[in-house]
Design a protein around this nucleic acid. Sequence first.
DNA 1: AAGGGATGGTACCGATCGGTAACATCGGTA
DNA 2: TACCGATGTTACCGATCGGTACCATCCCTT
Lengths: 211, 211
Amino acid sequence: MTTTQPTQPPRQRILAVADDLFRRHGIRGVGVEAIAEAAGTNKMTLYRHFESKDELIAEWMRGIVAQKDRVWDELMAQNPNNPTAQLVEWSRRTADAFAQMEERGSAILNALAELPEADHPARKVIDEHRVREHERILVLCRDAEFSDPELTADQFYFLLEGAKSCVRCIGLKRVGEHLMQLVDTMVASRGNAGTSAPPRGSPRKRPSRRP
Amino acid sequence: MTTTQPTQPPRQRILAVADDLFRRHGIRGVGVEAIAEAAGTNKMTLYRHFESKDELIAEWMRGIVAQKDRVWDELMAQNPNNPTAQLVEWSRRTADAFAQMEERGSAILNALAELPEADHPARKVIDEHRVREHERILVLCRDAEFSDPELTADQFYFLLEGAKSCVRCIGLKRVGEHLMQLVDTMVASRGNAGTSAPPRGSPRKRPSRRP
DNA sequence: AAGGGATGGTACCGATCGGTAACATCGGTA
DNA sequence: TACCGATGTTACCGATCGGTACCATCCCTT
């Protein structure tokens, strides 16, 4: 049973329940009636707050990317003028988030796969977010003065997205640990690509604050 | 219009058309009737060859992974006793395949996202394939005597899967080129400590056949 | 020519789903 | 108390979809 406390207004409850159900069963796997019922309300109230299911999906996506943007803002405020630490911290948070998506993987990637229509309102939200995130990483790689920022930014992005999509076929614990090892090594080599095998049990966090 | 030459038996035509439609519109986005019609036949004949839509999906997936397995066999035969070249070749073929999936991304990843039910017949096909592919890469990393084969194997896998899922938000040309640069650098460093970024426009192929 | 298996055509069923209409109810405010 | 906006309830519509029954063909073999 997926209900929410009726103290919150219906709109919030619907969004919270939709988040849960969409993640677990996929967008097309759950109907509006099920969402309304699980939110302790009914279809009519749902349609008074969202003009269609597609708009609900888009709003759900806006919430997810807004949350991620808040995390970005937070970690950039926590590590001012330290692009390297910001990259590492973002990677660490991404790795930590793996624990919540072992079953179904990334909600954003899944939504993208479930929305083949290029003009779906949620698609714009997702596409813009991904471009923005990639741009963020690129700027950080430039600021961190990696030798080839474009290449290193893609490397970051590939590693992060790849790790996300591998959580389901490799154990999530190992994925998180290996991802952080790879990121640490990348950062340590200042983006001089490569990789490598840091000694086993190497330190996970390395703020490396530089003036 | 998505029709196939009626010279082939219906089963082949149905599978070919299903491959096209599933890729373009997603599994749940296309009905069996549309498939049958596009294949120049009808629903009845479809159900005489596939006991259900889910079984058709599973059979479609079996075809895809079988194709990938054939590619593996081929490139391993072409580079005998050279695990490094096999890894590079597999990466190159993956990068080349990006051109065909710019619109919708990887069919396997999409199918996974569209099949939330863990007991779906196609899920077993996909999961086994991913484990097998990861294992293949791991064995090659061991044979290539990388310093930390498990880590390097995950790095390969992350990079490849991540690049796949990024084809849609970054230009496919750059994704392919950067992926190959990263793989070349990884291989050149033998999985050991960081190296310098390869010069721009560095050689794409580097068989590096070693005795 | 006769037979039979594979295929095509059509119509249909039951279930689900997105979305709407019409009305009842409740809570706060003037 | 009278009112009004937000919410709950029920029933319904039209469309789509997976799946099936029934029968007409067609083609190959004997």
